[in-house]
Design a protein around this nucleic acid. Structure first.
Length: 661
RNA sequence: UGGGGAUUGGUGUAACGGUAGCACGACUGACUCUGACUCAGUUAGUCAAGGUUCAAAUCCUUGAUCCCCAGCCA
C-alpha cells in the first residue's frame, strides 16, 4: 500500500498490526494451503456478497474494506457478488446503488475496484449459478443426501423439536427416484408456493438447529430481477453460498458473527458435493470443487444510529428522513452526500480492525476521521451562519480592499486568492459578547481582535433595537494591521497580539446560501436500549437549516460534491439540491471547539445524581464495579444513564468504593 | 436448561508462556492569523477465584457476564 495523498486516510500505525484473518492466512500459507499467486505470495481471493435488498451502510463499508484490503495487501483479487437468491426482497435499484457504493469505497485504496485495476475479480450474480446449483442438488439427491419434504412451513416449525428433542419429518425416507421426480416437478412449476421443499438429510437431532435437515430449495412463483420468470425454485442461502464461493474460486469467505453456527452447514454442503469426486475427475461424479474457508468477524456498529435495513427502511418510509441518502443516515449514499470521504471511512473501519468482539464504535471516532482527512485536503473559505453586522466607523464608505486569503494553510501549493474588505461586514453573533463571560476572548466593547487575513478591529459600541437586541456592532480598524499582521516594534517583534481571530464576510460582497446543519439522528448512543423502541430516542433537532452569508466567489464556483472548510465552523459540502446561483451546503462535521466543550457542565457536577441512580440499579453494592464493567450497558439503560455517565460513575467508584452490603 | 461465540485503560485494538504496547478520547502545557491543526507530557487496563510454572492476558479447572441460534430471510 502506498502513501500517496489520496491514501492519506491510512495510517502506518495500524498497517503494522495484522488482524486475526491475516494471521490465519499467513499460518495457512506456512502450512501450504491455498497455493501461491504470480508473486509467490499466498493466494487470496475475497468477495463482498450483498443481497440487493437495500442500500449499503457504513457497516458494509467495513466488510468491503476488509475484503478489498486483503486482496490489495496480498496481491490477490476481489469480487463483487450479488447474493440474489430471494426474488421477493430484491430490486434493480439496489443492484445499481450497491455497485456505485462499492466503487466509491474501494476508490480509497487507489488500486481500482471490483471491475478494473490489479485486484479486479469481477461482478457476479448468484442467480447466474442457479443451473449449476440445481445440478448439484440432483447430485445430492442421488447420493441420498437430500429429499423432498411435503411439510408446510408451520408444520416444519412445530416439528423442529427443541433442546434434547429431535425434529421429525415423515418424508425422510423417500426413494431417490421419487425425490428426483418430485424435485423436477418443483422446478417445472407443478407445485404451488410452500407445498414442498428440498431438504438436506443431515441430523434431525443435532444440537445445532441449522443441521436439523435444513431447507435447500423453496418454491417461489416470483419474477427475479435478473432471471425473470425462468425459475420458480430458489435456493436458500446456506445451500447457495458455499457453491457461489466455490465457483468463483474464493479462498476466504468472510461474513459476520451470526453465521458462526452456519459454518458446519457451509462445510457439510461442500463436502457432500465433493463426496465421490476426485482430484483428476475419475469416478462417477467428476472433479473435486474448491472448498473455501468461511471466517466470521464482528460487525461495525457506530453509536447514535440504527443500522438494520428494516429500521433504515422504516425511517425512509415514515418520512423521518428524506430518503436513503438523507445526510443524517448511516448509508454510504448519505455519507457521501454529507461530505464524508471514502478515505476517512476506510481509515476508521480499518482502525477498528477485524475481530470477533462485538462492540460499538464511537461516532466521535468516525467524525474525527473525516476531520483529519478533510483538514488536509479541503480548501478554506469563510461563511457566517448567524450574522450580525459590524460597521467600521473609520473605514470610508464605498472603499474596497482586496486582501489575500490563504486557501489551505495545510497545503502551501493551494495558494491564495483575493477577498474583499469593506466598511460593513458580518461576523458570527456568538463571536460577540456585550458582557463577556470568564474565558471569553472574542469581540466585546473595548476589545481588539483580528479579522482573519484582514485588519485588527476594536469594538466601540453597539446599536440595539427597541427590544434590546443587538442589531449592529460599531468598531474602528487599525490601518497598520493590513492583512491581519500586527505592526512590528524596533525589535522586529509584533507589538500587538490579539487573543482572538474571527472569521467575517463583507456585507457588500457576500452572497446568501442555504446551509443545512446536521446533528446526530438519535440522542442516545444505543437507540432503543432504554425503552426498547428506537423511535423514542430520535433527536428532534437533527436538522437545522439556516440562511448564511457566504464568500461571494462560492456563488458561481461551487460544484456539487465540492468540500470546503468554513474557517472556525467546520467542513461543508455542496449538496445536489444546489441550483445555479443558489448553492446549498451540508455541514459534514464541525471543527473541534475547545471553548464550547469547556462551557458544558462537567461530569463531576452531576455526580451526586449519578450515585443516586447507581443505588437504584438494585444491584448489590459490592458487585457494583463488576456489574458496571460487564453489563453496564443494560443496567445503565434501565437507570437512564448515558454511557458517558457510566464511565464517570465507574471512575468515581474506583476512588470511592460503596460500603459492602 | 442445548449449541455457537466473546471478555485487555473511557473506547477500539496488540502481545500467541518471558518488559502489558499502540491508536482515539480526556486532562496539562507549548505553539498558532482557525479556541482548528501540530508538538510534548499525564492519566488509565488483563472478567473473577483457584491451579500448573522460575515465569500466565496467554495453559488447566470452576464460575460470572454479554451476544447469536429453533425463517420455506440473508
Amino acid at each position: 500500500m502506498s502513501d500517496t495523498p489520496s491514501n492519506a486516510g491510512a495510517s502506518p500505525a495500524h498497517e503494522r498490526v495484522r488482524n486475526f484473518i491475516e494471521v490465519m492466512i499467513d499460518a495457512d500459507h506456512a502450512a501450504g494451503r491455498w497455493g501461491v499467486n504470480e508473486q509467490g505470495r499466498p493466494r487470496v481471493h475475497t468477495r463482498f456478497p450483498p443481497e440487493p435488498n437495500g442500500y449499503l451502510h457504513i457497516g458494509h463499508a467495513k466488510s468491503i474494506c476488509l475484503n478489498y484490503g486483503l486482496a490489495v495487501k496480498y496481491g490477490g483479487r476481489f469480487n463483487l457478488r450479488f447474493d440474489d437468491t430471494n426474488p421477493v426482497k430484491e430490486e434493480q435499484e439496489y443492484v445499481d446503488s450497491i455497485q456505485n457504493d462499492v466503487r466509491w469505497i474501494t476508490s480509497a485504496f487507489g488500486a481500482g475496484s471490483y471491475d478494473s485495476g490489479p485486484h479486479a475479480g469481477g461482478l457476479y450474480f448468484a442467480s447466474n449459478y442457479f443451473e449449476t446449483m440445481y445440478a448439484y442438488a440432483e447430485e445430492l439427491i442421488k447420493k441420498g443426501h437430500a429429499y423432498v419434504c411435503d411439510l408446510t412451513g408451520d408444520e416444519v416449525s412445530q416439528r423442529r423439536g427443541s433442546v434434547g428433542v429431535p425434529a421429525t419429518s415423515p418424508f425422510r425416507d423417500r426413494s431417490v427416484e421419487e425425490n428426483l421426480r418430485l424435485f423436477r416437478e418443483m422446478r417445472d412449476g407443478k407445485h404451488p408456493n410452500g407445498a414442498k421443499t428440498l431438504r438436506a438429510k443431515i441430523d434431525l437431532a443435532s444440537p445445532n438447529f441449522n443441521l436439523r435437515d435444513p431447507v435447500m430449495y423453496r418454491i417461489l412463483h416470483e419474477e427475479h430481477h435478473n432471471t425473470g420468470a425462468k425459475w420458480c425454485l430458489y435456493p436458500m442461502y446456506d445451500w447457495a453460498h458455499g457453491i457461489e464461493d466455490s465457483l468463483e474460486n474464493i479462498t476466504h469467505s468472510i461474513c459476520t458473527l451470526e453465521f458462526e453456527d452456519h459454518r458446519p452447514l457451509y462445510d457439510w454442503f461442500l463436502r457432500a458435493i465433493n463426496e465421490g469426486r476426485t482430484a483428476d475427475g475419475s469416478g462417477p461424479w467428476g472433479k473435486l470443487i474448491p472448498h473455501p474457508q468461511q471466517i466470521e468477524f464482528a460487525k461495525f456498529r457506530p453509536t447514535y444510529t440504527v443500522m438494520s435495513k428494516r429500521n433504515l427502511l422504516k425511517m425512509v418510509q415514515s418520512g423521518i428522513v428524506r430518503g436513503w441518502d438523507d445526510p443524517r443516515m448511516p448509508t454510504l449514499a448519505a455519507l457521501r452526500r454529507r461530505g464524508y470521504t471514502p478515505e476517512a471511512i476506510r481509515h476508521v473501519t480499518e482502525e477498528s480492525s477485524a475481530t470477533k468482539v462485538e462492540g460499538y464504535v464511537d461516532l466521535g471516532k468516525i467524525e474525527n476521521a473525516v476531520r483529519d482527512h478533510l483538514n488536509k485536503v479541503a480548501p478554506r473559505a469563510m461563511a457566517v451562519l448567524d450574522p450580525v453586522k459590524v460597521v467600521i466607523e473609520n473605514w470610508p464608505a464605498g472603499k474596497v480592499d482586496e486582501l489575500d486569503f490563504v486557501i489551505n494553510p495545510e497545503d502551501a501549493s493551494a495558494g491564495t486568492r483575493k477577498i474583499a474588505f469593506t466598511r460593513e461586514i458580518y461576523i458570527e453573533r456568538e463571536d460577540f459578547a456585550e458582557n463577556p463571560p470568564k474565558g471569553f476572548f472574542r469581540l466585546s466593547p473595548g476589545v481588539e481582535v483580528r479579522l482573519r487575513w484582514a485588519y485588527f478591529i476594536t469594538c466601540t459600541g453597539v446599536v440595539k433595537d427597541a427590544a434590546g437586541n443587538i442589531t449592529e456592532i460599531r468598531a474602528t480598524f487599525d490601518p497598520e494591521t493590513r492583512g491581519g499582521n500586527s505592526p512590528t516594534g524596533p525589535d522586529g517583534k509584533p507589538t500587538k497580539k490579539p487573543k482572538a481571530t474571527l472569521h467575517w464576510i463583507s456585507a457588500e460582497r457576500c452572497a446568501d446560501a442555504e446551509v443545512r446543519l446536521f446533528d446526530r439522528l438519535f440522542s442516545a448512543e444505543e437507540p432503543g436500549a432504554r425503552t426498547g423502541n428506537w423511535m423514542d430516542d430520535l433527536n428532534p433537532d437533527s436538522l437545522k437549516v439556516v440562511r448564511a452569508k457566504i464568500d461571494g466567489h462560492l456563488l458561481s464556483s461551487a460544484r456539487v460534491g465540492e468540500k470546503f472548510q468554513f474557517e472556525r465552523l467546520g467542513y461543508f459540502c455542496v449538496d445536489p439540491d444546489s441550483k445555479p446561483g443558489a448553492p446549498v451546503f451540508n455541514r459534514t462535521v464541525t471543527l473541534k471547539d475547545a471553548f464550547a466543550a469547556e462551557s458544558k457542565p462537567k461530569a463531576s457536577v452531576r455526580m451526586y445524581t449519578l450515585i443516586d441512580a447507581a443505588r437504584e440499579l438494585k444491584v448489590k453494592a459490592e458487585r457494583m464495579g463488576e456489574v458496571l464493567s460487564r453489563s453496564g450497558l443494560a443496567e445503565a439503560s434501565r437507570a437512564e444513564l448515558t454511557l458517558d455517565e457510566v464511565r464517570g460513575l465507574k471512575e468515581w467508584l474506583k476512588k470511592n468504593p460503596l460500603p459492602k452490603v
